[in-house]
Amino acid sequence: MKNRLRELRAARRWSQTDLADRLEVSRQTVYAIEAGRYDPSLPLAFKIAAIFAEPIEALFFPDENTDNTP
């Protein structure tokens, strides 16, 4: 899953540690989400959306290389 987390964090001049503290997760978790290596749980995604005052679908979107066909 792709996301805009790094872009939004940088616009606020927050480090990964700053964001991690706000989310109550580790800096490594923030790094993994930004790198697309970890998809956040739904509660964490809602928390991220609330911090950036954006809807979840404006922050996270499917990777074009992923086949989402049922």
Score class of each variant (00 low, 15 high):
43 P>F: 03
4 R>A: 10
38 Y>W: 09
10 A>S: 13
13 R>D: 13
17 T>L: 12
13 R>N: 14
35 A>G: 00
29 T>N: 12
2 K>E: 12
46 F>W: 14
54 E>H: 14
65 N>F: 06
2 K>Q: 13
45 A>V: 06
48 I>D: 00
26 S>V: 03
63 D>Q: 09
24 E>L: 10
31 Y>N: 10
57 E>D: 15
53 A>V: 01
69 T>N: 09
10 A>R: 15
16 Q>R: 12
65 N>S: 12
44 L>C: 04
42 L>G: 10
40 P>V: 07
29 T>I: 01
28 Q>N: 12
3 N>R: 00
59 L>F: 06
43 P>Y: 03
31 Y>G: 08
50 A>F: 00
66 T>I: 15
69 T>K: 02
10 A>K: 15
31 Y>Q: 10
66 T>V: 15
38 Y>M: 12
46 F>Q: 15
5 L>I: 06
33 I>R: 08
5 L>A: 04
36 G>P: 06
7 E>L: 07
44 L>W: 10
68 N>F: 13
33 I>Q: 04
53 A>G: 10
59 L>Y: 05
5 L>W: 00
69 T>V: 08
20 A>V: 02
19 L>D: 03
39 D>W: 05
37 R>V: 03
13 R>A: 12
4 R>E: 13
24 E>M: 08
21 D>M: 12
19 L>R: 05
69 T>Y: 00
6 R>N: 00
18 D>N: 13
66 T>P: 00
54 E>W: 08
54 E>A: 15
56 I>C: 12
1 M>N: 10
56 I>T: 15
7 E>H: 09
42 L>P: 11
38 Y>F: 13
29 T>F: 02
17 T>H: 09
44 L>K: 08
32 A>R: 11
25 V>G: 11
15 S>L: 06
36 G>T: 03
45 A>T: 04
56 I>Y: 00
30 V>F: 04
51 I>G: 03
46 F>G: 11
57 E>R: 07
56 I>V: 15
69 T>A: 09
8 L>G: 04
23 L>I: 00
18 D>Y: 03
9 R>V: 02
56 I>P: 06
57 E>S: 11
19 L>P: 02
7 E>Q: 12
7 E>I: 08
9 R>E: 03
59 L>G: 03
34 E>C: 05
67 D>R: 15
21 D>L: 14
39 D>Q: 15
18 D>F: 04
1 M>L: 13
39 D>P: 02
24 E>A: 14
40 P>E: 00
27 R>H: 08
5 L>N: 02
69 T>L: 05
13 R>I: 01
66 T>W: 14
21 D>Y: 09
7 E>S: 07
28 Q>Y: 11
21 D>W: 09
31 Y>C: 05
12 R>K: 13
69 T>I: 05
